[in-house]
Amino acid sequence: MKTDRFNLNRMSLLFRRYFTERLHTELIYWGIMIIVFMFIRNQMVAIGGLIFVAGAFYAARFSREIHSPTNGCAYFMIPATQLEKWIVAILMTSLYYFLMMILTYILGNLLGTCLNNMLASIDFLSSDLGFFHPSTLQWKLFGEMELTRGTFNGVNMGERISFLSLFFRIFLLIQSVYLLGGVYFRRNQAFTTFFTTNIIQLLLLILFIVELRLIIGETSVHFYNFTTEDALQLKNVFQNILRVFFYLLPPFFWVTGYFRLTEKQV
């Protein structure tokens, strides 16, 4: 085994460790998610909220073992670099979690619709399979798909990709914040991160308002009401800054979390 800074073999061992140790927990967790999705499959706001909130809890609790004196010792003594351990945490809380959410949503939607059809005595064979009865989110994500034709009609394809991309970016941002909170706070990581981020947002908002007053002279500003060229330019600047922050914040939180992990003592 190579002992360099990054080794895929060691990372695969870390993944295997995670799945072997938490197999039962994962199965129960995703099983519950399928059942929940069966019931809320047509409520887009609830689905989005569930993905974000449950994801935040998952991310915040992912690294909780490092705060326990006994489990923390075992974790840090595993012969792998902190970078490898942290990349595993990022991949598990962002990519894996998101894909599992989509998969369990599809399964929950399928099972929920099948159950609904059974209870309502709808003949499966004479109708499209229940899964493809579009829920609001499904419509947004996948469009209307019909089993009999097996085609994807591609209506508003660009809009759907854009929606999914935005959804995933917001998800990544939230996950990165809560993953950092998970390694930073010793107890009640999810709640502490929630309160901390709210306080920081409030402070940033106050700072933003103060800056607006200093620059523009008033606090009640709506970009779309701007008419002068200067104001439009300012609007673009703000929008670009926000866009850059939106893309840079997840990597920033991941890097900060990595350094926090390397500094962690047990």
Partner: peptide, 22 residues
């Protein structure tokens, strides 16, 4: 610095043992 080259040559048995559901 916790380099793997060192960690693979150290085993630490702490007084309180980690809980493994394995």
């Amino acid at each position: 610095q916790r380099p793997p080259a060192l960690l693979r040559d150290i085993y630490f048995l702490s007084e309180e043992m980690p809980v493994h559901a394995l």
